[in-house]
């Protein structure tokens, strides 16, 4: 990418897997020999409350221990946050990228956020409902992020998602998450 450290900020609501998405990305990157950081911003942790999670990926060790203020990419997992949270804060209109889970178009996101940089939309809820049977969209959003940035190796990230969810949720749900990831990767319009 254009800087030494690739920085992503995920916006979601407690329980939607923003923290997990940020961690999965970091864990996949480390398996590919990168240095990483991934951390959520904790306020009062509770289901449904807005949460932020960050990932840093670099070829060199990362020493910085403060939050991500100028991300390269912002991923919005829940479209209802567009109106209530300044999701594009610190995101450069010249080189930044905003990826939003929404059933609306780019223009709609642009008019709500006022962001004139690059925007990618994907109906991750539809994908998640069809693949997982639940509106948990973090893996689909990772698919869109991967397609747009190629920040980590595609196969590596897929393998890591499988490994992670197989351990935590069993193989069936792990495969379904991989399917959601793949579908979003293939269907997202750049």
């Amino acid at each position: 990418m254009h800087r030494d450290v690739f920085e992503t900020r995920f916006h979601g609501r407690g329980g939607q897997g923003a923290k997990t998405a940020a961690a999965l990305l970091a864990e996949a990157a480390i398996e590919q020999g990168k240095y990483v950081q991934s951390f959520p911003e904790y306020g009062a942790e509770r289901q449904g409350a807005p949460v932020k999670a960050f990932t840093r990926i670099s070829d060199k060790p990362i020493y910085l221990h403060s939050g991500v203020t100028n991300p390269d990419v912002v991923v919005v997992i829940d479209q209802t946050l567009l109106k209530s949270i300044p999701v594009t804060q610190g995101l450069s209109e010249e080189r930044g990228l905003l990826i939003v889970n929404t059933n609306q178009g780019v223009d709609n996101v642009k008019s709500i956020t006022g962001f004139n940089g690059r925007i990618i939309v994907i109906d991750a809820v539809k994908i998640a409902l069809e693949e997982l049977g639940r509106a948990v969209t973090n893996t689909a959003m990772l698919g869109a992020l991967e397609k747009a940035t190629g920040v980590v190796d595609y196969e590596g990230l897929k393998k890591h998602i499988l490994k992670h969810f197989a351990y935590h949720l069993g193989e069936d749900l792990a495969m379904k998450n991989v399917n959601a990831f793949e579908r979003a990767y293939n269907e997202v319009g750049l």
Binding site: A22, A23, A26, E27, I30, Y35, V36, Q37, S38, F39, P40, Y42, P61, I62, H65
Partner: peptide, 12 residues
């Protein structure tokens, strides 16, 4: 170690 900053941060 620092609470959250270190304890909850995934790092290499």
């Amino acid at each position: 170690q620092d609470g959250f900053i270190t304890s909850h941060c995934v790092e290499t």
